[in-house]
């Protein structure tokens, strides 16, 4: 299979996903009992005011018409206006998406930076205490309620020790660096503002740890499995027989090959992290898409909810595409088969 073929098939699937996702979210959002017009009309609103708002927002039209109108907008890159903030959904997402991505990527970095060495150690010393330890860490990771872990680390590092801030992205008393990438840590470096960078780094540590902890174990287990497979291969035995040191065999021969199947897991993990951030963002008051979508669901702000789902689903499909392409690029075996 060629690169182009993969890309074409994935893009076709993307259209299907876009259509499916919008139909599903639109249907469900409209099943939620409650009328967004009443929500923004406020206390004491008369039926006339509610009706007036409904007309303004186009909510008085039959649902299929509303859906088609929405789809028409999406195709032209217009996700409609948020009912809650009255601003274009895309504008809101443009503000919140980089925050979520920055958090997800930092969490992924954390998970891999610790997960890979743990996975390697656990494969090299299989069935030894370190292996059991990694397994416990991995299982605890996927078993920990992130919303609870978040509260505990806030209590410890902010409440008791006072080392780290409890929430937000940056100290609000600091000037925000000029927005280039939307990633505060990068933007502050580009602006040469070390104080802002330090503050952004301090703010991201706890949420990224909380979010990354769940995936740390997943990564470690995947690396362990791939390493075990590689260590049994003939070329390793040959290398060992040729007198290569154990360290060299593990890190220069086995690990690079073991990383190839792990790419899939990392890709999937990034997708999970993007929307797994919903709860973590709520606990840490992280101004990202997760907190935005939770508030939007509560306010029946379905243009915002749909905008979020479409964007994250797109990201999910694109990440998968990227994973497939990287996979093909780095693994000669797959290319040869095709």
């Amino acid at each position: 299979m060629s690169f182009l073929n993969v890309i074409r098939r994935r893009l076709m699937f993307l259209i299907l996903v876009l259509f499916g996702v919008t139909v599903i979210t639109f249907t469900i959002s409209n099943l939620i009992p409650g009328d967004p017009a009443r929500m923004i009309a406020g206390d004491r609103a008369t039926p006339e005011i509610v009706q007036n708002i409904r007309e303004d927002l186009g909510l008085d039209k039959p649902l299929p018409i509303q859906y088609l109108r929405y789809l028409e907008g999406v195709v032209q890159g217009d996700f409609g206006n948020s009912i809650r903030t009255r601003r274009p959904v895309l504008e809101d997402l443009r503000i919140f998406f980089p925050a979520t991505l920055e958090l997800a990527l930092t969490a992924l970095f954390f998970a891999t930076a610790l997960g890979i060495p743990l996975g390697v150690a656990s494969a090299v010393w299989k069935d030894k205490p370190i292996d059991h330890f990694v397994r416990v860490i991995a299982v605890t990771g996927i078993s920990t309620p992130a919303f609870w872990l978040g509260l505990l680390v806030i209590l410890l590092f902010y409440g008791n020790l006072g080392w780290l801030p409890s929430g937000g992205r940056i100290d609000p008393s600091l000037e925000m660096p000029t927005r280039v990438t939307g990633f505060l840590m990068i933007d502050s470096l580009l602006a040469g503002d070390l104080t802002a960078f330090g503050s952004a780094l301090k703010h991201i540590l706890l949420p990224a740890f909380t979010l990354g902890f769940v995936h740390l174990g997943v990564v470690a287990r995947q690396v362990r499995a791939a390493m075990l497979e590689e260590l049994q291969q003939d070329y390793i035995r040959t290398a060992k027989a040729n007198g290569l040191s154990r360290f060299k065999v593990v890190f220069t021969e086995a690990l690079p090959n073991a990383m190839i199947p792990s790419i899939t897991v990392l890709g999937l993990a990034l997708g999970d992290l993007l929307y797994g951030a919903v709860l973590t963002e709520t606990v840490f008051a992280w101004p990202g898409m997760g907190a935005y979508v939770v508030n939007s669901i509560q306010a029946l702000d379905f243009p915002a909810v749909m905008g979020f789902t479409v964007v994250v689903s797109l990201a999910y499909v694109l990440i998968n595409l990227a994973v497939d392409l990287i996979y093909m690029a780095v693994d000669p075996r797959i290319r040869e088969v095709s």
Binding site: I32, P33, G34, D35, R38, A299, L300
Partner: peptide
């Protein structure tokens, strides 16, 4: 309930 849903009721 969510506030919006409660208002509806």
């Amino acid at each position: 309930l969510a506030n919006a849903t409660m208002r509806e009721r």
